[in-house]
Design a protein around this nucleic acid. Structure first.
Lengths: 150, 150
DNA sequence: GCTTTACTTAGACTAATGTCTAGGTGCTAC
DNA sequence: GTAGCACCTAGACATTAGTCTAAGTAAAGC
């Protein structure tokens, strides 16, 4: 079973442009062509692209992914380097996850903050620290109860 | 208490260039200047910049942040819109968090995959599905025990 | 045979986000 | 008063990642 560039684009939610761009950047040297010169993606190719997309979403630069793909093509000699690569990416992704949790907590605060502000009709007198997890919102010094809104 | 651009850059881990760039883009209209024309950041300014940086990290575009800052400057008339804005960002951030968790799970898989491959000295015969959470790695059909490595 | 559709290439173009340079100002310490 | 530093501006330049155009090819259906 093989797939065309259009099918692959569809599957991963990328444009065909993007896939050709990745190919041009050396991210898809494993993709074979048919007699007419068209790309034919195998199931194995899709597995690899799945990881490439994952790395992409984790914020890994194309040049770094290129480096990984190079190792992939080089075979078993690069297994240790690839393990080290993924350990590094794992660490980065975990860090990113923690940052994202912190940011989400700040946004949660802001939603509560503005819920209180809308309820009061003004921002004046509303307080709290968005960096403190689940920090209560106060209105003129008194804790604001979010449940009174609903 | 006020702060210079250098101190603010230091505090948020940004370059002074970036802060001036943000200012140029209309993200910091609330920052006042002293008699010499230099920016003087107040504690309130820092609070707002904290949120701007948070939005930035959540992938919000500068133009969107600009829009939010505009609402901020407009005062209490925009409270409901600001609440809606943060609810939207909260939703986006949560989605992003879930994606990040999925990606981390794929990376975890890859670390286990390559741990097995390094142990075996070859990738041949090693299998598993990185999209299945905690999917066991098999070597020639037999489940690979990660603990045998250490 | 002709049209349509999906593909091909090289390379130009865009968007977003900085990053830096050049030339200048103002304050502080010596 | 002058050296050094941190700041200022406008605007050029860089980087990353696409996105699109133009011109062409190959196979499928009418």
């Amino acid at each position: 079973m093989t797939y065309t560039i259009g099918q692959v684009a569809e599957r991963f939610g990328l444009s065909e442009y993007t896939i050709r761009f990745y190919d041009k950047q050396g991210l898809l040297p494993f993709v074979k062509r048919n007699a007419a010169g068209r790309r034919e993606f195998t199931d194995d190719d899709l597995k690899t692209i799945n990881i490439i997309v994952c790395l992409k979403e984790c914020g890994v630069k194309i040049s770094e992914i290129h480096h990984f793909v190079d190792m992939l093509m080089a075979g078993d000699d690069t297994l240790e380097d690839r393990l080290a690569f993924f350990k590094q990416q794992q660490e980065n992704a975990l860090e990113q996850l923690e940052r994202q949790k912190k940011n989400l907590s700040k946004l949660d605060f802001k939603v509560r903050y503005y819920t209180a502000a809308v309820y009061e009709g003004t921002e004046a007198g509303i307080d709290g620290d968005c960096d403190v997890p689940n920090c209560p919102i106060t209105v003129n010094g008194k804790v604001f109860d979010q449940d009174q809104v609903g």
